[in-house]
């Protein structure tokens, strides 16, 4: 198990370096950074002096090394727009995004897994149909539309929930539902398919032949095996929620990291975009790593491979 963890950790670090290089290169893919920084009316001299000031005249690899070295220490440079250190800017926004992401994935898992299990126990039953309906609806409805509908109903007409902002836990209820519901269908379907597959397997029959009660058969013997692919999927979705909640953050005016990314792209604020891409990628890498470890704990066959 320990060798497995170390191997995966090594792999994760390699991926992290690759991603960091790619996100750094973005700066140059977007055109001449000095010219972008100087603005459209700047003279050639101004651009040259900015190039020197920000060190864009050095070889790219040197700049990358320099940038990476500072990034590891938590220094992502200064935002072109806010004139503030990018690190503190992101840190401030990240708490909103993290709260939303954790709530969203929890909501998705807590609805999808029980529904998927229930649907698999009785395929084609009413509960299976309801689960299928919910998942099709979830896949068909765009988040922005669903979010607006929720605001119209619960914030405007009923007045139960605040329509926007992030100042209290209540503010997170609707964004959580919108974000979680987006991830729910895939998890539900995977749980259902996995459970159906596992429940028809020989070792479930063995468990029943031992006289194990049905609940034990379902949860101890079946779910543990059926949940393995769900863990991997949930990790990817968790990463997606932290990085891709831009739409939801915009609808509910939650000023999180997703919203910051959108703002920074619009403003050509490259150091911020770069840092955000790196941070979001790191989330993916960390969650994938954690999912691998969790899966290895669930499935002993993975530990040896």
């Amino acid at each position: 198990m320990l060798t497995f963890i170390l191997k995966r950790l090594g792999l994760a670090v390699l991926v992290a370096f690759t991603v960091s290089f790619i996100s750094f290169s973005l700066l140059f893919l977007a055109g001449d950074p000095a010219a972008a920084l100087a603005g459209e009316t700047a003279s050639g001299e101004d651009i040259e002096s900015l190039r020197k000031l920000y060190g864009f005249d050095r070889p790219m690899l040197v700049q990358y090394g320099d940038w990476l070295f500072s990034a590891i220490q938590g220094d992502f440079g200064e935002s072109y727009y806010f004139r503030l250190p990018v690190a503190s800017l992101i840190a401030e926004r990240l708490s909103v995004t993290m709260t939303l992401g954790v709530c969203g994935i929890s909501f998705a898992l807590l609805t999808a897994v029980p529904l998927g299990v229930a649907a698999a126990i009785r395929p084609n039953s009413i509960i299976d149909r309801v689960a299928l309906f919910l998942s099709v609806a979830g896949q068909a409805m765009p988040s922005f539309w669903f979010g607006l509908i929720l605001i119209v109903i619960f914030a405007i007409q009923l007045g139960w929930l605040p329509p926007s902002g992030a100042s209290s836990p209540v503010h997170f209820i609707m964004p959580t539902i919108v974000l979680g519901y987006y991830a729910m269908p895939a998890i539900m379907r995977l749980t259902r398919a996995g459970m159906l597959d596992v429940l028809s397997s020989d070792y479930i029959r063995t468990a029943r032949a031992k006289g194990a009660p049905e609940g034990r058969v379902l949860f101890r013997h079946a779910l543990r095996n059926a949940i393995i692919p769900v863990v991997s999927l949930a990790a990817v979705q968790m990463g997606f929620m932290l990085g891709g909640s831009i739409v939801v953050e915009s609808i509910f005016a939650l000023h999180g990291a997703g919203y910051l990314a959108w703002e920074s792209i619009a403003r050509n604020d490259l150091p911020t975009v770069q840092a955000l891409i790196l941070v979001f990628s790191m989330f993916y890498i960390v969650f994938t790593f954690l999912a691998d470890v969790l899966n290895a704990w669930l499935d002993p066959r993975m530990r040896s491979s």
Binding site: S201, D202, Y203, R205, T206, A207, R208, A209, K210, G211, A212, P213, E214, H221, R224, N225, L298, D299, P300, R301
Partner: peptide, 29 residues
């Protein structure tokens, strides 16, 4: 009833299946 059967199964009557490769749960020792 299912409860009575459950108490018999594994305790007073047990079964060995055809497929040893798939009849054991891969997740447990």
């Amino acid at each position: 009833n299912p409860r009575t059967m459950r108490k018999l199964r594994g305790a007073r009557m047990s079964m060995i299946f055809q497929e040893p490769m798939t009849s054991l749960n891969p997740a447990y020792t």
